[in-house]
Write a protein that binds this DNA or RNA. Structure first.
Lengths: 229, 229
DNA sequence: ACTTGTCGGATTGGATCCAATGACGTGCGA
DNA sequence: TCGCACGTCATTGGATCCAATCCGACAAGT
């Protein structure tokens, strides 16, 4: 079939993936023609793609000038974490009624996979999978999208936090595992209040860690337009 | 100047305004050519406009088929209210440190204007202004945008709730005023915890009211594609 | 030497034109 | 009379072409 979905949406998904995986570093310029050539389409769908990414905050575009991968500063990152501290517990609460005994087994396995991760990339991937599994509910599309969106916005910096510095990785690693187990325990017990509180604390701890390493927000490129949305 | 901002963004803002003001009813189809002709531009910027509105959930577009103003059902509306119950108190908390004595005076005046509103449209307008004023902070762009977005998504239904039925309007009116005053009192006292709790309760009460009148979600148009995001 | 004005290339924004897909209506057959 | 298939038509999706804007370099003047 010629287009199982619109080209703009498909390319937007691909670019989003590159941005959150750090292939496209915040601050780098995006030239329409370059992307168009790579995907073998005209510039037109690319323009639509950039509008989509802009309205979700991943790309900052200046009229008649160009598009850049949005960069966050520490305050914005903190703000996003604060939002996650409020929203993810809510999402977890709404997902919990639909969990079953089979879900719990899968959650345990997922938590095990996080602990068995050997590389930062693997860890990030599996950690995200664990959180997504816990909060996967049938009837919360918008909330789920919002949470996913917030996660995407900070994914690059989370990776920065883990990748270069073995110290931050070591010190926090065991804490994260313990927190995961406590969240999982509360979920299995059906204790909504504990699960919410523990998940909020989990995110809060990560935020505190981010605030300890503000140097990950110093992008070398000086002329990077800041995000406007 | 030929374009102080991009045409797609300008038209997106206009259409958004029409949707939240109820000029464009949820479920109505949007034909690109029609809009293009009205604004005196080609279909191209309209396409970008629709992508923008889609990614913010106001418009649902089906590949090669068309675009419709997104319609909510009761569950989605409840979900959005639950998100607001979590996020708006956070935004209020973050805004409070920047408030001054002059702000307080303006808040009082704004609350008075809400109570003096004579028509449903006026009431909605002033109520929104009051909430926005309370939560206007300098350093919370993304949170503010998210809250504003959630507000937009339910604006039409809030209007529906007030407009036709004098009973719901009467019964809740005094409660709303009282809650506004209690929130304002807490804000002026600098009591963050009370302000957060009271605002959450305020939103919760409105949600409960919405849940009492599910008939506002019965859109006559049968073939309306549901929102996917 | 530094600032300022101007010119040129590169890049984005928009309009028109063409192809492809989905929907609706009609006609044929059971 | 009802159901299915086919053909036409309206509408969307994409490509190419043209105009407007912005950035950088070069040159001239102070």
């Amino acid at each position: 079939m010629t287009h199982d979905q619109a080209a703009s949406a498909r390319i937007a998904a691909e670019l989003r993936s590159r941005i959150i995986q750090g292939v496209l570093v915040p601050g780098t310029r995006i030239r329409q023609e370059e992307i168009a050539e790579e995907f073998g389409v005209s510039r037109l769908p690319i323009r639509e793609t950039l509008r989509i990414l802009e309205s979700s905050g991943l790309v900052t575009l200046v009229a008649s000038t160009g598009a850049w991968v949005s960069a966050l500063d520490l305050d914005e990152c903190r703000e996003i974490y604060l939002m996650r501290e409020r929203l993810e517990p809510l999402l977890l609460r709404m997902a919990m009624p639909s969990h079953t005994a089979e879900s719990f087994i899968e959650f345990e396995a997922s938590a095990q996979r996080v602990e068995a991760a050997t590389s930062p990339g693997e860890f990030l991937e599996r950690d995200h999978a664990f959180h997504r599994a816990l909060m996967a509910g049938p009837t919360t599309i918008r909330l789920h999208d919002t949470v996913d969106h917030l996660w995407n916005l900070t994914h690059y910096y989370r990776r920065q936090l883990l990748a270069p510095n073995a110290v931050t990785r070591r010190s926090r690693r065991e804490d994260i595992f313990a927190e995961h187990r406590m969240i999982l325990r509360a979920v299995i017990d059906g204790d909504v209040e504990s699960a919410e509180a523990m998940l909020a604390l989990h995110i809060r701890h990560t935020r505190k860690l981010v605030e300890l390493y503000p140097e990950i927000f110093t992008h070398s490129g000086a002329g990077v337009p800041r995000s406007s949305r």
